[in-house]
């Protein structure tokens, strides 16, 4: 009994209590896994952004990262393998006031879900996709994914990988994503900032986080534990400014180019739908009963909100630089 009451007080006292479904703790992730870092950064970004948490939905696919949707205290859907993006697409279009965030793994998003990924990027669907890329299928036991570097050992390439891997920022960029960034799980503050930016970005934003799978990828490739992975990131991951996404591929234990590679404004799918129909049908076009003036008013209000949030982020940045808080000046 005493254990239970201690647990409750721990749960209530946690700084993550608002953000996580504390009743579902402890989570399933292994010690040293990078997914927790991403969840932490996400929580912090949401907190700092001041976004209405009721208006944010998190959708995941299947796999270790796929469990994120089950732990975060938002409207959340743990969908089928690879299908988080179309589920998110449906939710967003059925309820355009929502901000939808997909958090899933490399195998889920770019293997089985690859088709959905490229088309959501192509449409500039207004959603954020966070990919925790650990180069392997963790939950099924360490198999090859579309991002596994050549020569790396996976349980289905026991003699080393011979396939060409995807470079995800390049893939997202080429398909039309309007915000693309990459960090490693060592760079928590940068992830947080990127997520804040993406929360405030209208359009398809993609954040790749390179993270260790200690139990499978690290061990199978004799790369040590989680700390060793962070050492590697510290040594070989560096911020690259104005880099062409064609040049950010990752070789086995090679250099990792990080940074915000793409940020541009482009009408989203919904914008394009609204514009096209309003042009042709005029006032007769009322998506979910909303008239043109109402739509325009709302769009204006949202744009102003985004501008305000952007200004706040800029101010904070300037302040931190001024106070020499150790902000990586080459960061975001």
């Amino acid at each position: 009994m005493s254990t239970t009451s201690q647990n409750i007080s721990f749960r209530e006292a946690s700084p993550m209590a608002d953000f996580l479904r504390m009743e579902r703790m402890p989570h399933i992730w292994c010690p040293g896994c990078g997914i927790g870092t991403v969840v932490n950064s996400f929580a912090e970004a949401v907190n700092k952004s001041g976004i209405d948490m009721d208006k944010l939905a998190v959708i995941s696919g299947i796999g270790c990262t796929g469990r994120v949707a089950g732990y975060v205290n938002f409207d959340s859907i743990h969908a089928t393998h690879g299908r988080a993006i179309p589920v998110a697409t449906g939710l967003k279009l059925a309820n355009p006031d929502m901000k939808v965030v997909v958090v899933s793994g490399d195998g889920d998003l770019t293997g089985i879900g690859g088709n959905h990924f490229i088309h959501a990027a192509r449409r500039n669907m207004d959603m954020m996709v966070i990919c925790v890329n650990n180069f392997t299928y963790g939950m099924t036991g360490g198999q090859l994914t579309p991002t596994t570097p050549q020569t790396a050992n996976a349980s289905t390439t026991p003699y080393g990988n011979y396939e060409y891997p995807f470079s995800l920022p390049f893939l997202a960029d080429a398909c039309g994503a309007t915000y693309v960034a990459r960090w490693t799980s060592l760079h928590a503050r940068n992830i947080t900032k990127s997520i804040r930016e993406a929360l405030n970005h209208k359009g398809f934003s993609f954040i790749e986080v390179i993270a260790p799978c200690t139990t499978l990828y690290q061990r199978r490739n004799r790369l040590g534990d989680g700390l060793d992975a962070l050492e590697y990131y510290k040594e070989d991951a560096g911020v690259e400014k104005d880099v062409d996404t064609r040049d950010v591929g990752i070789d086995f234990q090679g250099d990792i180019a990080m940074g915000r590679f793409v940020k541009q404004d482009k009408p989203t799918y919904e914008d394009a739908v609204n514009e096209r129909y309003a042009n042709v049908l005029g006032d007769d076009y009322q998506l979910y009963g909303m008239s043109k003036p109402e739509r325009e008013e709302k769009a204006k209000r949202k744009a102003e909100e985004r501008a305000k949030v952007q200004a706040t982020m800029d101010d904070e940045e300037a302040q931190m630089m001024a106070e020499d808080m150790g902000v990586d000046e080459e960061g975001l």
Partner: peptide, 14 residues
């Protein structure tokens, strides 16, 4: 696949 997946999201979107 995406069509029916979108319906799940759409229905819970309201």
């Amino acid at each position: 696949i995406a069509s029916i997946a979108a319906l799940v999201g759409g229905a819970w979107g309201g």
